[in-house]
Nucleic acid binder design. Structure first.
Lengths: 153, 153
DNA sequence: GAAGATTGACTATTCAATCTTA
DNA sequence: TAAGATTGAATAGTCAATCTTC
């Protein structure tokens, strides 16, 4: 009943609901025969980035993937022809991942499936009046966790 | 700017914030030298259950783990002496997992660390006025996803 | 034959070591 | 020496086959 209980209950509900929604969405995507969620996320971030490219590390942050995992997924996407790597002339240690024309085509093709899934498994089940608060709350959470990322360095 | 955009933005913020918070909490636990989060979740659910026991399948649902994974984690917990398996006289196909006295002791020992981490990484960074909406929203989401679980059967 | 659970084989993900350039 | 990225070895997690009981 206390504020504390309410908070911990919110945390537990978040964990359960997140897991359920992600699983349901992934299942929808598999049934629809599209690319996996991780590919989709990476393509989405690349497509939205300036020049449709991101350094590996930036890509990892944007798509919530570890540096290692980004390397591996970009490998797969390169093999599939949806992304290519490109050297960074300004700093030759780093590498760009760039979405290809095929990648953009694929993204357009699967976007409706993905959006439908997110809508059906998340948005539509959220009380409409709570959506702004949810967005606000998690964006605040994001901002709060950024400084921590810095602190690691 | 539309409601739709707001919803998708909420989804993306949720994914990023969830990943950030979970990672931060796991890091906190590692630094504090406690048991892993998955063990903690299992012990917590068992401790809260009637008779401090749950069938494997129920435990999986409560702790957001696949049936397979529950088997494996309970194996580990049994080896560590924190949980024991017990036959179900009413249905000998199923098995109970029961938290032991040592398990409860361990749970009490690490609970403060866990609660501090959840508070520091989640609760304290959430705008206080949004907490009720967040709790309400995710509990609604949970309820909405239950029927789907049934449908699978 | 189906439900509950476990096991073995496979895939996904992480951790630590490595390589290259700054 | 540190930053950016990748790779090999190890761990965690999943999927399909199996075993037991209903």
């Amino acid at each position: 009943m206390s504020k504390k209980d309410d908070s911990v209950a919110a945390w537990r509900a978040l964990l359960l609901a997140h897991a359920g929604a992600v699983r349901a969405i992934e299942r929808d995507l598999v049934l629809a025969g599209t690319i996996p969620l991780s590919w989709y996320d990476v393509l989405l971030e690349l497509n939205a980035a300036p020049d449709r490219r991101l350094r590996m590390q930036e890509l990892g942050e944007a798509a919530v993937l570890s540096r290692t995992r980004v390397s591996r997924i970009v490998d797969e996407l390169v093999v599939a022809g949806l992304v290519r790597r490109e050297a960074n002339p300004d700093d030759r240690r780093s590498a760009y991942a760039v979405i290809t024309a095929d990648g953009r085509r694929e993204l357009r093709r699967v976007a409706p499936v993905y959006l439908d899934a997110v809508r059906a498994r998340f948005v539509d089940n959220l009380p409409a009046k709570d959506v702004p608060a949810v967005r606000r709350a998690f964006e605040a959470l994001l901002v709060a966790s950024e400084p921590d990322e810095q602190r690691r360095a």
